[in-house]
Amino acid sequence: MNFRTPISIAKTAHPIDYNSKIISIGSCFAENMAKKFDYFKFQNTTNPFGIIFNSVSIEKIVRRVVEQHFFTESDIFLHNDLWHCYEIHSELSNSNKEELLQSLNQIITATHDYLTHSTHIIITYGTSWIYRNIQSEQIVANCHKVPQKQFTKELLPVSEIENSIQNTVQLIQKLNPDINFIFTVSPVRHIKDGFIENQLSKAHLFSAIHQVLKIHNSQFTTLTYFPSYEIMMDELRDYRFYAEDMLHPNQVAIDFIWKLFIDSNIALESVSVMQEVEEIQKGLNHRSFNPESEQHLKFLSKLHQKIDILKSKFPQFKF
């Protein structure tokens, strides 16, 4: 008997290999996948402006990068002794106003350069629920613990999400017409919005993404979809695959989703290199009971030989 409902995922026509340059943006699940890319030494950069959940905020920050629209004092504000920006995650907030602006604008320049030369972009949408600042009437990426009375909470309609995704694609293609897009919906459930509301939110994302895919596929462009959410909900239909909060995928689930991503989106010739990288990573993480022993010193010597051989083939690798 088969106790699972395996999801069939088509092999992409534009796989990722070790010459690829990947940029990942979006929800916290984007960070989970990016850690895998980093572990296996792919050329990857992730969420340069921090975690962003909704499509409008992703579009807004992409527009800044593509058009090199730099931040000014009018884009930031002081709250709880820190300078913040509603377009970015609070992890980038700073106690010094000038340092914050300088840092954000340096990120714009660096991301513009990286995006120009990227081969793949992975965009992970988390929710259709947004918070709109009442005073500015602008959708924010992060509320920065500003009192909730200063915001209204809204569910973005499918049409607005679709338009936002379409704008994001066009902006990026304007800068880099050859880039490949991989869209996915985060498997993290946002039940603080409510159980029914979470399902509605995800449904709006699915509808919008697939409408954009339908439009672009008819034009033979390189937009694909990876079913992270569907794998979690249908193939890993059990709470043993969740973290303690019962909302986020645990490491077993992340590893399983990553394995399916490898099968569908990583070039076959790169898989053997990934195995070599993992062997080295495990060796580097090994802790000997007797670090000065002859046996351990021989182990380290062989390990560094493997690293040197691999770096001769891939000079960008850093262990």
Results as ranks from 00 to 15, higher is better:
Asn2Tyr: 06
Asn2Cys: 03
Ile9Val: 08
Thr12Leu: 07
Asp17Lys: 06
Tyr18Met: 10
Ser20Cys: 07
Ser20Asp: 05
Ile22Met: 03
Ile22Val: 11
Phe29Val: 00
Lys36Leu: 02
Phe40Asn: 09
Phe42Tyr: 14
Thr45Phe: 11
Thr45Ala: 11
Thr46Val: 12
Thr46Ala: 11
Asn47Phe: 14
Asn47Gln: 13
Ile51Thr: 15
Glu59Asn: 06
Ile61Tyr: 01
Arg63Asp: 06
Arg64Pro: 03
Gln68Thr: 08
Glu73Met: 10
Asp75Glu: 12
Ile76Lys: 01
Phe77Ala: 08
His79Cys: 06
Asp81Ser: 03
Asp81Asn: 09
His84Ala: 03
Ile88Val: 15
His89Pro: 04
Ser90Phe: 10
Glu91Gln: 15
Leu92Tyr: 15
Asn94Tyr: 04
Ser95Met: 08
Glu99Trp: 12
Glu99Cys: 08
Gln102Val: 03
Ile107Gln: 06
Thr111Ala: 04
His112Tyr: 05
His112Gly: 10
Tyr114Met: 03
Thr116Phe: 13
His117Cys: 03
Ile121Met: 15
Ile121Gly: 15
Ile122Glu: 03
Ile123Thr: 10
Thr124Trp: 12
Ile134Cys: 09
Ile134Leu: 14
Ser136Met: 12
Ile139Pro: 01
His144Lys: 11
Lys145Gly: 03
Glu160Lys: 13
Ile161Tyr: 00
Ile161Pro: 07
Ile161Trp: 02
Val169Gln: 15
Gln173Ala: 00
Lys174Leu: 14
Pro177Tyr: 01
Phe181Val: 02
Val185Tyr: 02
Ser186Cys: 15
Pro187Gly: 05
Arg189Ala: 02
Asp193Asn: 09
Gly194Ser: 10
Leu200Ile: 10
Ala203Trp: 12
His204Gly: 10
His204Glu: 11
Ala208Cys: 14
Ile209Glu: 02
His210Gln: 06
Val212Glu: 15
Lys214Asp: 15
Ser218Glu: 07
Thr221Phe: 04
Leu223Thr: 05
Thr224Cys: 03
Tyr225Gly: 06
Tyr225Asp: 05
Phe226Asp: 09
Pro227Asp: 05
Ile231Gln: 05
Ile231Trp: 03
Asp234Pro: 01
Asp234Asn: 08
Glu235Pro: 00
His248Phe: 13
His248Ala: 10
His248Gln: 10
His248Thr: 10
Pro249Gly: 02
Gln251Lys: 10
Gln251Pro: 04
Val252Ala: 12
Ile254Thr: 02
Asp255Pro: 12
Phe256Trp: 11
Trp258Thr: 00
Lys259Gln: 07
Leu260Gly: 00
Ile266Glu: 04
Ser270Cys: 04
Val271Gln: 15
Ser272Asn: 07
Ser272Asp: 14
Ser272Trp: 00
Ser272Tyr: 02
Gln275Trp: 02
Val277Trp: 02
Gln281Phe: 00
Gly283Thr: 04
Leu284Ser: 02
Asn285Asp: 09
Glu294Val: 14
Gln295Cys: 04
Leu297Met: 12
Phe299Val: 06
Leu300Gln: 11
Gln305Lys: 15
Ile307Cys: 13
Asp308Phe: 05
Leu310Met: 07
Ser312Thr: 09
Lys313Pro: 01
Gln316Asp: 14
Lys318Arg: 09
